[in-house]
């Protein structure tokens, strides 16, 4: 399998006044095409930070992240926007849906940003596939946690990104919903041929991935 994204000795530091906190300390990592990878670790170990760096939402303090031969840590803001738009789908533990958009509008947004025609129809088809055909015009506040997360997954995968970054996607859900969501997530990843990098505490979920890595205190062990 070809390499999709490569992290080379990356560091991430936050400065608060004179105090410097190093969150990521020299991580190197390679994710292949269509590979599923689980990052596990304790709270505060740097899992989410790693995801944000890969998404181009944070800039590395040092080191480089290369996506399909392009160094994303050197990209301009517009290039980063384009990178996320075309290649990355992100799923959060707290869903982060737009509260004043309906389920359908939330999903269609990813396609609209990419100027895809028939975005509403495509979003609708996917939501129906995910069992949310009866919730298309509902606002997030009118959906259950599991339904909100399915909408979030649909939004992340609808434009068929190369990589899906998921941060504790089942963290806020009960067992039954967790199972449903993880099944959904793996199904769409497989059907779209995307790579998946997920951060989780859930050992069962982690075991479903091709590979597991452990992060502790900002370093891979």
């Amino acid at each position: 399998m070809n390499s999709l994204i490569t992290l080379n000795n990356i560091h991430l530091q936050y400065q608060n006044g004179s105090r410097i906190t190093e969150v990521i300390k020299g991580v190197s990592l390679d994710i292949k095409n269509q590979e599923t990878l689980a990052i596990v670790g304790k709270s505060g170990s740097g899992k989410t930070s790693l995801i944000m760096l890969m998404a181009g939402l944070e800039k590395t303090s040092s080191g480089s992240i290369i996506f399909q031969k392009k160094t994303i840590s050197q990209m301009t803001e517009n290039e980063l926007s384009h990178y996320r738009q075309k290649n990355v789908g992100i799923i959060f533990q707290s869903f982060y849906l737009i509260p004043n958009y309906t389920a359908l509008e939330n999903v269609a947004l990813s396609l609209e940003i990419d100027f895809q025609p028939n975005s509403l129809e495509l979003a609708k088809d996917l939501l129906i596939k995910l069992g949310l055909g009866h919730r298309l015009e509902h606002y997030p506040s009118q959906l259950s946690g599991g339904e909100q997360q399915r909408v979030a997954i649909a939004r992340a995968v609808v434009n068929k990104p190369s990589i899906i970054l998921a941060d504790e996607p089942t963290g806020n859900l009960d067992d039954e919903n967790s199972l449903l969501i993880s099944q959904t997530l793996f199904d769409v990843v497989k059907s779209h041929g995307s790579s998946l990098c997920l951060v989780t505490h859930d050992k069962e979920l982690a075991q479903r991935c091709d590979r597991q890595i452990i992060i502790q205190d900002g370093q891979l062990i």
């Binding site: 939402l57 996320r84 939004r155």
Partner: peptide
Amino acid sequence: KSQLYQHLIFKILGLKK
């Protein structure tokens, strides 16, 4: 606050300024 939140989602989804 809600605009800031909305812009965050836009940013994550790759919308240009």
